[in-house]
Nucleic acid binder design. Structure first.
Lengths: 138, 138
DNA sequence: GTATTGCATCGACAGCTGTCGATACAGCTG
DNA sequence: CAGCTGTATCGACAGCTGTCGATGCAATAC
């Protein structure tokens, strides 16, 4: 990974943020970047981990809180947490004996905004699931 | 998969919808279900396909429009479209010679809502990325 | 009918992913 | 110091994923 995390975390340029993909096609670089984040969300254990962390008191949880709810081994949980961290979705820090994880809301917000459909246009498109205007496509 | 798609599409029960995972931990069933959708978004080609479809005139696009922008073969595009379809993210229909795909906004909205952080609470949590309350942890 | 075009499916294969047990490391306790 | 507990890393391995060329099927054109 090296400094890959930084490039992910430091993403404040508006290239991707706040421009739902419904508006204009994603360029390849943005797609690669976003796909990496979605891939981190593509596992049930990681999704539950994320929600456990996010919903935990204080917005953070130590690994000791995150291992028992699952049927998988501790190394596996540690692996999944690493994936979430390298995707820029969570932050972590050791405090004494325990390591704490917390969600990085900006990352979730970025993904959420991307998927956020401009309700007007998009819903119209679905309402006419079989658009009558097929004529314009020939 | 068989009729698995239906169970995804027919999801109007409020179990998952509109309850961001920040509020309460996801149960395993919901996590498995959502992970399947995120997995469909976890590939750069599929993300770009989705945005090409969504941003295309009329909210739909035929496969002929979707093959040329990529460096991968036509069977590969077809495969990715199948993944998106089976994840319940897009719909498709053959009309004459061409097959058209369109985005299912409800599915995107569901994922978007899930990731939508209750800005107040979550941002607080990040603001204190190194919480001052570490004292309670020793 | 045959030929052609658009798209899907098949079979194969390299590479990635999730999982485990074993082990190493960090920090507390005595 | 030694011992213990909480996490991370390592190495291995089965299974999944993305990709391809070849092929099949559907609809139009001739």
């Amino acid at each position: 990974m090296s400094n890959l995390e930084l490039s992910i975390l430091g993403q404040d340029d508006a290239v991707v943020c706040c421009s739902p993909m419904v508006r204009e096609p994603l360029d390849e670089a943005a797609a690669v970047d976003l796909a990496r984040m979605f891939k981190a969300l593509s596992d049930p254990v990681r999704l539950r981990l994320l929600s456990l962390i996010a919903s935990h008191e204080g917005g953070e949880a130590c690994v000791c809180d995150l291992t028992s709810p699952f049927d998988v081994s501790q190394p596996t949980i540690s692996h999944h947490l690493k994936v979430l961290r390298e995707a820029g979705l969570v932050g972590s820090e050791r405090r004494g004996t325990w390591v704490y994880y917390w969600v990085l809301p900006a990352a979730l917000a970025r993904l959420s905004a991307l998927l956020e459909a401009p309700v007007g246009a998009a819903l119209d498109a679905q309402a006419v699931a079989v658009p009558a205007r097929a004529g314009g496509l020939t």
